[in-house]
């Protein structure tokens, strides 16, 4: 686990809300090795989600450097960043964010529309991803026909289907009951331990953080300490 997946150096992020400037991250530096499973914790407004967005290439830092998988993503244009995300990162959100008009397999196939894979290959990949999350029998169901836990499994399958090395998860169990949350976290653990995925997860839940290899605490835009699981 020595090779770096994420390298963040002196990153500052300032948001402009009208005339007001809000500095959310203050010269933050961080390194996440390949195959790590990191939980980011901290109070509201501490900058957890901002940091996650920067790691996932959803936003750009105001200053500082961010490398993910060897790519300096802070130097990419909006179009290049979109292309980079398509091939390198999988996202899991608190509210699943599935397309309600598509079936489970349609949702999982969505990222593959950005590839040149033929339809038959896409179908195979989708079947594998749904199998990994244990939802092969719900492939033809639309999100409204699934439980919250099942929806989150579909979202994880969607994040996995293009085989990215990095998964970023924003409160993936925030909308689930304890039992279902533990199942989802167990699944993430399997993906980390057995499939070698590097996972960065934002959570408020200390029990969820226990599933990670280590926990990072943020407060007022700075890292406090690192706790190994």
């Amino acid at each position: 686990m020595s090779e770096s997946m994420v390298q963040i150096r002196s990153v500052t992020k300032i948001y402009e809300r009208g005339k007001q400037k809000v500095e959310v991250l203050h010269g933050l530096s961080l390194e996440i090795p390949k195959g790590d499973f990191v939980a980011l914790m901290g109070p509201s407004g501490s900058g957890k989600t901002t940091l996650l967005n920067l790691i996932g290439g959803l936003d750009q830092p105001t200053s500082g450097e961010i490398s993910v998988g060897g790519h300096r993503i802070d130097q990419l244009s909006s179009g290049q960043l979109a292309n980079w995300r398509a091939h390198n990162v999988g996202f899991v959100f608190q509210f699943y964010n599935l397309m309600p008009v598509l079936t489970a397999e349609g949702n999982v196939e969505l990222p593959l529309l950005l590839t040149r894979l033929p339809a038959a290959q896409r179908k195979k990949n989708v079947a594998v991803a749904l199998q990994v999350v244990g939802l092969s029998d719900r492939a033809r169901h639309k999100p409204r026909e699934l439980s919250g836990g099942q929806e989150q499994r579909v979202a994880i399958a969607r994040a996995l289907v293009s085989d990215p090395q990095l998964l970023v998860c924003d409160e993936p169990t925030g909308d689930l009951d304890r039992k279902t949350a533990d199942e989802i976290l167990g699944l993430l653990q399997v993906l980390n331990r057995e499939h070698g995925k590097t996972i960065v997860m934002v959570t408020h839940d200390p029990k969820a953080a226990e599933f990670a290899r280590r926990t990072l605490h943020l407060e007022k835009g700075q890292l406090l300490e690192q706790v190994a699981a």
Partner: peptide, 15 residues
């Protein structure tokens, strides 16, 4: 709007 944002998150370009 959130669905369109998810599309962009997944890697679909602005275009």
């Amino acid at each position: 709007v959130p669905e369109l944002a998810v599309l962009k998150t997944l890697g679909f370009s602005d275009g």
